[in-house]
Design a protein around this nucleic acid. Sequence first.
DNA 1: CATCAAGTTCATTTCAGATTGAACAGGTCG
DNA 2: CGACCTGTTCAATCTGAAATGAACTTGATG
Lengths: 170, 170
Amino acid sequence: MPTTKEEGSTPAIRMNDLERQVVDVFVDGVKVLGMPRSIGEIYGMLFIAPEPLSLDDLVNRLSISKGSASQGLRTLRDLGAVKETEVKGVRRTYYEADVELKRLVGGFIREQVRPHLENGQLKVGNLLELVGEEEDPELRKFYDERVEKLEIWMRRGRMVLPLLQKVLGQ
Amino acid sequence: MPTTKEEGSTPAIRMNDLERQVVDVFVDGVKVLGMPRSIGEIYGMLFIAPEPLSLDDLVNRLSISKGSASQGLRTLRDLGAVKETEVKGVRRTYYEADVELKRLVGGFIREQVRPHLENGQLKVGNLLELVGEEEDPELRKFYDERVEKLEIWMRRGRMVLPLLQKVLGQ
DNA sequence: CATCAAGTTCATTTCAGATTGAACAGGTCG
DNA sequence: CGACCTGTTCAATCTGAAATGAACTTGATG
């Protein structure tokens, strides 16, 4: 039962202290990870909600716009951080937080970390050509070393990800 | 010898392609870590510079303000990402990049990650009291579980850090 | 088919955080 | 001491990413 009687779930429901503080923790959390506050608000609200919530519930309780809620939910879906709950006989979609750390970490790595790392490796690849153009052999040696180091760092970054997943997962 | 003849090191030196692209890689890098672009520019410039650079060198080559350079260098010093080089008989301070990944990771964890985690744990601690106020026993049980889960996540976060340092270091 | 309800899209606006630059502090040298 | 050089500080400004909200799409219902 998504929301009880008072049908649907529309009128501005105030957040209580617990909800407010939990949301706050997640807002900080996602900020550290470089994600927008609204993502933290939405996930936090779902995390502490005993029942699934609809988009409109989130709009009302968090006082955010429909646009924010919609985009935030999409991002969270992409991350695999929320589950949709189809309620029989109701059109509206209800969401609940997926609270498996393993999935959260995996989603974050897949969506946010890997793309950046791959892009970085590409750029570092291009660097090698530029180093080749350097005439002065001593300088060239120095550049080679540095670019080599960069490559090692990138490689190591990639290797850490599965380990992270393993350690954090369950 | 910090900079060669043409004494000190003042007039606007243009960046070459290699420098520009290396800086670019680091700008992206620090952005992912949630740090300001100027930090990436400065560290990147130092990383690819065969000789130590002064604050003014950075201002000239990167076309950033003295203020940015000064603050950026301070942050990088706090992170342990930069070493100061005292040159005998010269007042000016010269900087070079510290390229030990171990130190970089350690500094980042110490300065950026730990503070946030600790702050988070504090906030989660406060949550427990709020949960105690909940009357409905079933609801209370749910809240307890969630807060408990949050604590576990935090704890796990802290445990991962030393592991990260160990794996990435050298 | 017309109406309504649910959700998405995206041009505009808002705002937090980064950058600037001018004033300032501290040190050095003649 | 006084001119000068190096670097720091911080109020004012700028900017890019996030939030808004109105227009739009989709699809269900009578």
